[in-house]
Design a binder for these strands. Structure first.
Lengths: 364, 364
DNA sequence: CCTATTACGCAACGCTGTTGCTAAATTTTT
DNA sequence: AAAAATTTAGCAACAGCGTTGCGTAATAGG
């Protein structure tokens, strides 16, 4: 939740979210854990824990007797106290997942979408797919909403699909509003890559630094996690990473420029030169590191995950070789920990994050 | 100021900073202006204004009689209530500026630095330069500190120069600490490009969106302003924009890779092909826009400012032509409004920002 | 002179996290 | 077996924040 001014309710929500972040990161925790992690006073932590317990979000889970003194009460998150549904809308498929408060994916289902599908067809597919999730009826009251990760361009703030690449029927569609009415659920709309990086950040926990998710799948995109939050850009259009020029004299791209990362990669992949294709992506990743100085790079996307080791090795090598070596300058490269579910799961986590994540203040 | 947990003092500082931001942006303001901009209640604004007035940071400046009713009291920032000194440390020169609370540059002085200067030599130059600023003695008590904008790599959080490019005597120098002792002033250390974009953001005001400052000057760097704050990256090393590959088969760069933006630009500039040099920078800028979706691009740096119109035209054209056209997707391209002072002035503003800027919370 | 309108602050309030202190549960020492 | 030490945890009072209710000051218009 974003607001401009800070009042005491912000204060409460913020500190409460800090405790929830601890609960999500570790399996179980006690009061002293939170005190250490947050710097809140023990008394304040007690109050927060009492509130969260009353809401059913956390629960006592035994005691710890470390030696002398009164044993400490151990608490744990109640994963099944809240759920969210995540949808990954691609050009031909709809993937739906059910995610709990701890970020665990409980169900995952893929269904085909009609070629060049319309908004109506997507809504129908969403309705059918959500209905098919087993036990969805029993989650009433615990279902916080639906997150949609979709190809752009779109307007995250207004829930508007501006002009989805390669889909004729998607110009200025107020998808969030329409879906909320159609499904009777709160809906959150974001670019696929941004949803993806949110999933990685949520699962990794609060120590997740600046990071990018590279998605190779009918195009190349990137999602960014900068300064503890998703970076969407001035018009929610950040991440068109495939359309950065890496070869001034390269082949002409659909975007009109020459030598875009995407077209160069595509040519190499088409020619069956997997190693060269992977190296091209690696060059792009190192460009990102030089520009943004990231702590994590996560690789994802259907086309990439068909040859995960080739890409992982190429990017890992390039990061080792091409970035100036220094022990203080390290970047972890990894494959998406959620595989093909990462976009849908991240979209679901964005919904949970709106309610139970760390709130933000928007400077004027 | 960064802290983890939110308490009531954070509330106060935050809302107070919002009012200061209004005061810095507009020439004069009244209570209703602030109410509208922030959403605070009139009563809350009255309290904040009373505190700021007592501290001498703002003052009444007449009344406004809009017609019927009691006239409103008009307030204004007191620019000379606080000052900061900014230093831009380049390879051969030291530039010092004196900046007031409103962000106005009052004095600017350039002095040469010895070739391959040592930390000691820089400290002496700083001492001499600061002493030479006229009227500096009368500012005691109103001087908030010294900001240093310097070539990297460096560690902003610890005030440590890791390994300044091309300077032999600068390995792991704790410049902030040393300078604080030597000068008896609080010192703030940051990369030159980050200081530069801070200057633009401060002057532009709170509505400044995601932005980058492109600096062409013995190398090409970029400073980023993302999500209402400076983006420094995981290791304060963001902005090595010159070392992004734009030509896979291009000439070998000092960094070891081939076809870096910097080396390609350098070759064109050396050959006297100004238009081509400018176009190369423009390609890089469009790459940034595709990746990060920026609202502003600011051009700066000694080498660029020797031919400002050529670069401005090339980048402006490329942004118009190469980024997918849409009325909602607009980026403003401009030359640095502070010219050669931008880095030093930005460094000074970072010091002021620490005290009177909008405080941040660091999620665990 | 009266009324409507606008600006603005005092006082009381609700809420936050903090502080001071007491109670409870356990181990260690006598 | 009893007393002391140690640690956890919460009740109660408190300070500080923005908010709300309401009274007062200052102006224009009738």
């Amino acid at each position: 939740m974003t607001r401009v001014t800070a009042d005491v309710t912000f204060l409460r929500d913020y500190n409460q979210a800090l405790v929830m972040a601890v609960g999500r990161t570790v399996r179980s925790f006690e009061r002293s854990t939170v005190v250490e992690a947050t710097g809140l006073t023990p008394q304040a932590v007690s109050k927060v824990i009492a509130r969260l317990t009353a809401d059913g979000l956390i629960r006592p889970a035994g005691v710890r007797r470390p030696g002398i003194g009164k044993p400490a009460v151990v608490y744990e998150l109640v994963p099944d106290s809240r759920y969210a549904i995540g949808a990954h809308v691609a050009r031909r498929t709809l993937r739906l997942v059910l995610v709990d408060l701890a970020g665990t994916v409980h169900q995952s289902a893929v269904s085909p979408l009609p070629g060049d599908f319309t908004p109506k067809q997507l809504l129908d597919a969403l309705t059918a797919g959500i209905g098919a999730l087993t036990g969805i009826g029993e989650l009433r009251g615990r279902l916080t909403g639906l997150g949609i990760g979709m190809i752009g361009p779109l307007d995250h703030a207004h829930g508007l699909v501006r002009d989805a690449h390669g889909l004729r029927h998607w110009h200025d569609v107020p998808l969030r509003e329409v879906a909320e009415q159609h499904l009777g659920l709160p809906v959150h709309l974001d670019k696929d890559v941004t949803a993806g990086i949110t999933a990685e950040a949520w699962r990794y926990g609060a120590t997740f630094g600046d990071a990018a998710l590279i998605m190779v799948e009918s195009g190349i995109g990137a999602g960014f996690w900068l300064g503890g939050t998703a970076h969407r850009g001035a018009h929610t259009n950040a991440g068109e990473f495939g359309h950065t020029v890496v070869d001034l004299d390269g082949p002409r791209c659909v975007c009109g420029r020459h030598g875009c990362l995407e077209i160069v990669h595509h040519h190499a992949a088409e020619a069956g030169e997997l190693a060269r294709a992977a190296r091209v992506v690696a060059v792009g990743v190192v460009n990102l590191l030089q520009t943004l100085d990231l702590a994590h790079v996560v690789l994802a996307g259907a086309d990439l995950l068909r040859h995960p080791q080739a890409y992982l090795a190429a990017v890992g090598d390039a990061v080792q070789t091409d970035v100036p070596r220094a022990d203080w300058l390290s970047t972890k490269v990894a494959l998406s920990s959620l595989g093909a579910d990462v976009i849908a799961a991240g979209a679901a986590m964005q919904v949970l994050d709106q309610h139970y994540g760390i709130p933000e203040l928007a400077p004027i």
